[in-house]
Structure formats: structure tokens, C-alpha cells
């Protein structure tokens, strides 16, 4: 009886969030700097059609995928590290991904093999995950404050890598480095949508595969091991997947911070259940949050666009401080 009512509630929340995401996507496709509305899609104006299908739709879909990827990465890091403050941005994993991409651009790899950039981002994300993990690790699990401190240090280090490599690269300047460091969806293309959609699909398959194991991490690794979980294998798969998501997300849009922190907590406020419930809910809530933020960022003062990373930081920083207060 308990399980049935829980499942009903979960399905209801999924349906609700799907409706919100769909609405946000529709609104996002309808409004924009050029004023072309959704109605024009059914009209005969080829320009408006091109704007809606070629520019707004990929951008809105990319925003949705971005939100889902970052929220799921955040949730997975929080679960594995048993730390409610974990987030790809705060941990420095996003920074690692962006410096991987920046180094690729500086070495001219980006121009010859554009497809290599997501791979370099992924490599950077994996490196950063390993570094955070080694820096913050203690005999009994991972210390939350050490984790935040090492993330802070890594972030400064990666910012330096981004600035140096992009300053040294030809035909480039600091505004490009800035784009990587603050996050921006302005360059969204269908290729980006495909890269992120494929990465998200692969990640979700892995995470659904290990969801029943991951949720048992909530009482620690020893406890999970005692419940028959192959802890080391699940950890490896989980960290690699969260890094893949972060790498792909950063490769297509630069660093959008705090989504991974904010979303799982907002979901938990509405529905306090285990990883299997939080996984689909976080993905959808993340999509809704980033699509909405993107619509706000480009319609608040057109034709100017606020960087979306700045908007998520406005939302995320007060929330982070609140959580930090509660933690310590």
C-alpha cells in the first residue's frame, strides 16, 4: 500500500514537471529579441521559421538538456559523497571541464577537430573529480568543509588555466575566456543539442542501472557494502557518469553554476525520497529551471542577454550560504 501511493505520487510529480518543462519550452520558443512569435511557425514567413526552428528551438532544448545534466550530476555527486553541498561547480569539476576545453582551443585542436572538445571537457572533468576526491578524502568518508575548500582552490586553479590558455591562443581574447567561465547559451546549435542529448542518454542508462545501489549510499559506503552493493564498482561508474554529464554540459555552454546544488534540494523539499525518485525529478526540475532562467536572461533587457551563469548564481549563492550555515 505504501509503495503504491509513493509510486502514484512520483508519477504525479513527473507529470507535473513534464508539463512545466513543456510550457517553459513553448514560452522559450515563442519569445525572443526579434519578436517573431510561435504563430509565425504556421505562417509563410521563412525568416521567422528559421529563427524559431534554427535558433530558438536548439537553444531552448539545449537549456533543458543542460539543466537536466547538471542537476543529475549534482544529485549523483551529493549521493556518492554524502554531502548536500556537492555540486559540479562548487567541487571544481565544471572548472576542470572548462579548462580541458580551453586547453584544446589554445592548442588549436578545436579548429581541426571540433568533436574533440567534449572529450577534452570530459577528461578535464574526470581529472577534477579525482583531484577533489583525493584532496577531501579522510579515513571515514569525505569531510564536507575540506570538500568545499578543495573545490574553491581547484576553481581558482582552473580559472587560471582558462585565462592563460585563452590569452595565449590566437584570434582570441579575454571575453572568450569569460564566456567559458560564466556560462552562455547564445551559441547554441543543433550539434550541441545532439552532443548533450547523447551524453545525457548514456548517463541516464548507467544511472538507472545503478540507481538501486546508489540509493543505499545514504547511510555510508560500509552500510551499502553490508547490503550487498559492489561499492567500488558503483562509485567508479557513478563518478565517471557525473563527470561525463558535467564535461558534456560545460563543453557546449561554459560553466553554468549552482544548478546541480539547487535542484536536488528543491526536489527534496517537495518529495523526500531516495535516489530512484530523485533521479527523474531532478532531471526534469533542472530542465525547467534552466529553460526558465534562459528565457528570463534573454527577454529581461533585449537585445542584451545576461549570461545565464550569472542568473543561476543569483539564485544559487544565497541558497548555498543557507545550506552551509545549516551544515556547520
Amino acid at each position: 500500500m505504501n509503495s503504491a501511493s509513493d509510486l502514484r505520487r512520483l508519477l504525479f510529480l513527473i507529470a507535473l514537471l513534464l508539463a512545466i518543462v513543456a510550457t517553459a519550452i513553448l514560452v522559450g520558443v515563442t519569445f525572443g529579441a526579434s519578436g517573431a512569435g510561435l504563430r509565425t511557425l504556421f505562417g509563410s514567413d521563412p525568416t521567422a521559421r528559421r529563427i524559431v526552428m534554427g535558433i530558438r528551438l536548439p537553444r531552448v532544448l539545449l537549456a533543458a538538456l543542460e539543466g537536466a545534466a547538471l542537476a543529475v550530476a549534482g544529485l549523483t555527486f551529493q549521493t556518492l559523497l554524502r554531502n548536500p553541498l556537492a555540486d559540479p561547480f562548487i567541487l571544481g569539476v565544471s572548472g576542470g571541464a572548462a579548462s580541458g576545453a580551453a586547453v584544446g582551443i589554445a592548442l588549436g585542436i578545436a579548429r581541426r577537430h571540433p568533436a574533440a572538445i567534449p572529450l577534452l571537457s570530459f577528461a578535464g572533468a574526470c581529472g577534477a573529480t579525482a583531484a577533489v576526491f583525493l584532496l577531501a578524502r579522510r579515513r571515514r568518508g569525505v569531510d564536507p568543509i575540506r570538500l568545499i575548500l578543495s573545490g574553491l582552490v581547484l576553481n581558482s586553479f582552473f580559472s587560471a588555466i582558462i585565462l592563460v590558455s585563452l590569452s595565449l591562443s590566437p584570434n582570441s581574447d579575454l571575453t572568450v575566456a569569460f564566456r567559458w567561465m560564466i556560462g552562455n547559451l547564445a551559441g547554441a546549435s543543433w550539434n550541441d543539442v545532439i552532443v548533450l542529448a547523447v551524453s545525457l542518454a548514456v548517463a541516464l542508462v548507467v544511472l538507472v542501472w545503478i540507481a538501486n545501489d546508489l540509493r543505499l549510499f545514504s547511510f555510508g559506503e560500509e552500510d551499502a557494502s553490508g547490503r550487498g552493493v559492489a561499492v567500488e564498482r558503483v562509485k567508479l561508474a557513478g563518478y565517471a557518469t557525473a563527470s561525463l554529464l558535467t564535461g558534456a554540459a560545460v563543453a557546449v555552454s561554459g560553466i553554468i553554476g549552482f544548478v546541480g546544488l539547487l535542484v536536488p534540494h528543491l526536489v527534496r523539499m517537495a518529495w523526500r525520497r531516495d535516489y530512484r525518485h530523485l533521479l527523474p525529478l531532478s532531471a526534469l526540475a533542472g530542465a525547467a529551471l534552466v529553460v526558465t532562467s534562459d528565457v528570463v536572461s534573454r527577454t529581461i533587457a533585449p537585445p542584451l542577454e545576461l549570461p545565464i551563469g550569472a542568473l543561476t548564481a543569483f539564485l544559487g549563492v544565497p541558497f548555498f550560504l543557507l545550506l552551509l550555515r545549516r551544515e556547520t
Binding site: 554524502r82 538501486n212 547511510f219 555510508g220 552500510d223 553490508g226 547490503r227 525520497r273
Partner: peptide, 23 residues
């Protein structure tokens, strides 16, 4: 096996804790 002081990091209901023993 029950480790010493298992502490959840996020709020969780008793029934969810107990039923997770069925894992």
C-alpha cells in the same frame, strides 16, 4: 550488518529506512 552510528545526510522517513533493509 549494522555499522556503528549510521547517519543519514538528508531527512528520511523511518519506513523508508526499514524497507531499504529489503534491498
Amino acid at each position: 550488518y549494522l555499522p556503528q552510528n549510521p547517519e543519514p545526510v538528508v531527512p528520511i522517513r523511518a519506513i523508508d529506512v526499514v524497507v531499504s533493509g529489503r534491498a
